[in-house]
Write a protein that binds this DNA or RNA. Sequence first.
DNA 1: TAGATTGTTAATCGATTAACAATC
DNA 2: TAGATTGTTAATCGATTAACAATC
Lengths: 231, 231
Amino acid sequence: MEPLRPVVLERLMRYYRYLSEVTARKNIDTITSAQLGATLHIDPTQVRKDFGAIGLMGISRVGYEVCEVCRAIRLVFGFDRPYPAILVGAGHLGKALLSYPGFVRYGLRFIAAFDNDPSKVGLTEAGLKVQGIRSMKPFVRKNNIKMAVLTTPVSVSQTITDRLVSAGIQAIWNFSPTRLTVPEGVLIRNEHISLGLAQVAYHLNALRTEENGELPTLDQPCDEPCRPEDL
Amino acid sequence: MEPLRPVVLERLMRYYRYLSEVTARKNIDTITSAQLGATLHIDPTQVRKDFGAIGLMGISRVGYEVCEVCRAIRLVFGFDRPYPAILVGAGHLGKALLSYPGFVRYGLRFIAAFDNDPSKVGLTEAGLKVQGIRSMKPFVRKNNIKMAVLTTPVSVSQTITDRLVSAGIQAIWNFSPTRLTVPEGVLIRNEHISLGLAQVAYHLNALRTEENGELPTLDQPCDEPCRPEDL
DNA sequence: TAGATTGTTAATCGATTAACAATC
DNA sequence: TAGATTGTTAATCGATTAACAATC
């Protein structure tokens, strides 16, 4: 079967989140593509196509069985087949991710955390003892870990990534604001939250510009150095 | 001027991040659309269109002045006009965001943090004293705050949002995994990290399915209840 | 001048939406 | 049966890429 494109996966998640939420409250057995589409602002045809793409068959004049839909989506993502993962980088964000109880619903289970900082090694975060970075590679190999979550500083992210890949990691969920280079077949999912911030900033800036008028366009030569980014 | 679409803003951020990074290292004055496109895997025509859309003029046979590009992008997003913001929800994620030093580069400055939990109120996080949620509305009004970052549990997010909006908030950066309803004109940017996790899960699941073969398709009736989500 | 690069118009591609026959 | 809903094909829309004249 043709792999599903990211945009489809994203809609599947929206269906899933809504349907599992709504069925927890009300007792709904079936839902039509029109109902679902209206709630989520997705075209009903799109809903039917997405469901068709994961092998779901609707019932004429009735719609889709909510429970079947949820089951099919869980099967597509493998939410019911948990996969162990490690966290690399036990900073604020790393700790936040470690202690998030919601991930287990999506099959993610942290079984180890690593950090380079000696002051962090040995501490227990969310029930896991933070290990030194040198234990990482043997640990991944020994336990046949396929997934890593990366919250390291930009400066070390590529080095860590190379080590992870050589140890057999196949997917990296990257919160470090840099583009990682990996061999074919290894999946990188970048979570660059600064992109989201930029969208908000743009909106706010547009509002301010409306109110206060354009900033004076600077016609002086551009001598101000571009500032290096680390987010 | 026509507002820039999110996909354009996203590319602008990629240019910006790369250019400010590269100019911090090497001494590069100009860059061509072909060079930039090759590095970022973006079509050179696209680069030229994006630059044109923010009023940048290239130099024939030379390319674009890096410094001018960076300045134009900063102007579009308003990175040089800082905006005060508040954080609502001082949990792990909230604290991680508060203490992130990189945001200030994008104009974001936290000036207050609020939480409902009495055990958190009064604590100091990243230099800010966490205030009770009842102080939030008057604070926003008094200080004319336009932006809020939301890291509250799903159950209270909509209520908080309503209060924020009625206090005059115009943009919400939402890390709470729920869809918020707001009046026309208020911007919500959702940061649903579980979407990213799902993409990774899909990839890993596809790999496992290749190796182990398809899971047996369950032909039993679907009696397992769909689990409510809170991520 | 010749050649490289921009800016812009035209062509392609892919994703979304509309239309409608098939179904129960 | 009549009517509502699915599944699928066709049409539209928007975004990306190709082509090329204008520029220095």
